[in-house]
Design a protein around this nucleic acid. Structure first.
Lengths: 140, 140
DNA sequence: CTTGAGTCTGTATGGGATACAGACCCTAGA
DNA sequence: TCTAGGGTCTGTATCCCATACAGACTCAAG
């Protein structure tokens, strides 16, 4: 047994980071903004995490991967923490997020279209005339 | 004639903002980061813009609308300011930007797909079981 | 006991703005 | 001519989502 002087199953910050893949400092950040709870401390003031923290951090990370903002995640967690979340409530949040993701995609597609069709006109030559510069400079 | 005591065609900050639709404070921000030049000042230290500033700010705003970062815009402007930009040089920058836009779209589409197919399983009912929560909580 | 690694806190950085405070100034109306 | 209101000036704070670093402390292995 390694770590035999530490209380059973107590995880330090680096352990939690290792188990979740989350950056060390980010964990602390999540605590200060309140999406992760302040963990209990050892006698020497070290954070002592357990499996519940691992689960919660993974939840947060998966939500972030799906593009939920920390504010949205806070709302999701508030439902879950209340213990009485309903599928309906969660769906409202998820649908709202989905809508904003779709809006961003639409925005970027518009940009991509303009950009691609402009760049397509470039000769790529050693000449100063350039459709991209023209598009940005035009006195529309 | 209005404004007859101001030097001919001198534009104040609010004039430039009005002509371009750019936020007042943003203009100052662009000056501090150097994408807009420090304009000449009146005797009383007021910024005195002219048409060249209008053109440059419009250029910047169009580039921002196309999602260029201010850093990328700085590069574009450096080429233009050099007066010897070539279509080839500009194309390199625009192509790089286009690639990053496409990467973002791909990312968001992946997110959209996961999110949409998960939410589609929601009953929306007043029950605690929810596929979205399950997906975020799963011990994968 | 020493040494290196881990942890603690507070604070700075980044991008891209936006907002506000407190001082100054300008112009139109009375 | 005075005054009231707006505009302008600067510096600094705020937002989001982290990431990084400094300086102090502590822990574990040799």
């Amino acid at each position: 047994m390694k770590k035999h002087h530490r209380s059973v199953n107590a995880l330090r910050r680096s352990d939690l980071a290792g188990l979740t893949g989350c950056n060390l400092e980010t964990i602390r950040y999540y605590e200060t903004i309140g999406v992760m709870p302040d963990p209990p401390r050892t006698a020497r003031n070290y954070r002592a995490y357990d499996q519940s923290h691992v689960r919660r951090l993974r939840f947060i990370m998966r939500a972030r991967e799906l593009g939920f903002t920390l504010e949205e995640i806070r709302d999701l967690l508030a439902l879950v923490d209340g213990g009485a979340q309903t599928c309906g409530e969660v769906q409202v949040l998820a649908d709202a997020h989905l809508a904003s993701v779709r809006a961003k995609i639409a925005d970027l597609k518009r940009i991509e279209h303009v950009l691609a069709s402009t760049v397509a006109q470039c000769t790529g030559d050693d000449v100063p005339e350039c459709p991209v510069i023209d598009a940005l400079s035009e006195e529309a």
